[in-house]
């Protein structure tokens, strides 16, 4: 049985001696293509194994030409080569994915770094602006306080000027009322002795204070050294009159100082 089978196969092989099976032709073409593809670099060992299968198909072809074994070997060799090619393409795609992911990570890291730098710059600018605003506000406060002080001083000065002017007016009125005379030795105010003192006395009469108040106002406004002269009438002794006039002058001085 086996002998007859081998004999029959031999006859078939002899009949197809010069015809290359299309499976083997295809497998050769597949290997030629794979030999110039990425599998050479990426999967050399697998490609070599596929070549060994192809070599087995070639050996079968040499010995048995177009036998079914040769055809099947060539068929499997072609599939094996295509598997290696597909695996190489898969590896290539995986490399592309890995590189793309790395690119994404690098770019995202760069973007993150740039964003953080920009954020830091913005924060610094904000801090500077806030500090500047605080300093400006502080400066404004100082200026406002100084302005208030100046305004207060100006108001006080104006008040004083008005008061001074008022005093001057009052002094001028008092001088006019006292009939003051402008002489070579200065402004001379003469008060009648009968208005200030009783005869032969050095005590100021109650009505004398109103007159002396007018004198005080005029003297304060004038702000000049003051001389006080006391007089008496011609009655009595001279020494008594001298003593009386001195006391009268002192009584006037005492009252004016009290004002």
């Amino acid at each position: 049985m086996k002998t007859s089978l081998y004999f029959g196969m031999a006859l078939i092989a002899a009949g197809c001696a010069t015809v290359t099976p299309p499976e083997l032709t295809t497998a050769r073409a597949s290997y030629a293509r794979a030999s110039t593809g990425p599998a050479v670099q990426l999967l050399p060992a697998d490609l070599h194994k596929a070549k060994v299968v192809l070599d087995a198909a070639e050996a079968s072809f040499v010995k048995e030409k177009g036998s079914s074994e040769t055809i099947d070997l060539a068929y499997i060799a072609d599939r094996t080569i295509q598997i290696v090619e597909a695996q190489a393409q898969t590896a290539l795609a995986a490399q592309t994915v890995a590189k793309a992911k790395q690119d994404c990570q690098d770019k995202q890291a760069a973007v993150m770094k740039k964003t953080q730098a920009s954020l830091a710059t913005t924060r610094q600018r904000l801090t500077d602006a806030e500090r500047g605003q605080a300093e400006e506000a502080e400066q404004l406060g100082v200026e406002r306080a100084a302005r208030q002080v100046a305004d207060t001083k100006a108001a006080a000065s104006e008040q004083r000027a008005l008061a001074s002017e008022q005093k001057t007016i009052e002094a001028n009125d008092a001088l006019a009322k006292l009939a003051a005379k402008d002489e070579a030795r200065g402004l001379v105010i003469t008060l009648s002795g009968a208005v200030l003192f009783r005869s032969n006395q050095a005590t100021l009469l109650p009505g004398a204070t109103a007159r002396l108040d007018d004198v005080a106002v005029a003297l304060i406004a004038n702000k000049q050294p003051v001389g006080i002269e006391g007089y008496t009438d011609s009655r009595g002794s001279q020494s008594r009159n001298m003593d009386l006039s001195l006391h009268r002058a002192e009584a006037v001085r005492t009252y004016l100082i009290s004002r």
């Binding site: 295509q82 598997i83 597909a86 695996q87 393409q89 898969t90 795609a93 994915v97 793309a100």
Partner: peptide
Amino acid sequence: LALTRENTSKLEA
């Protein structure tokens, strides 16, 4: 199987 994986990998790439 290999062709399917190749196809999937290429789509991912």
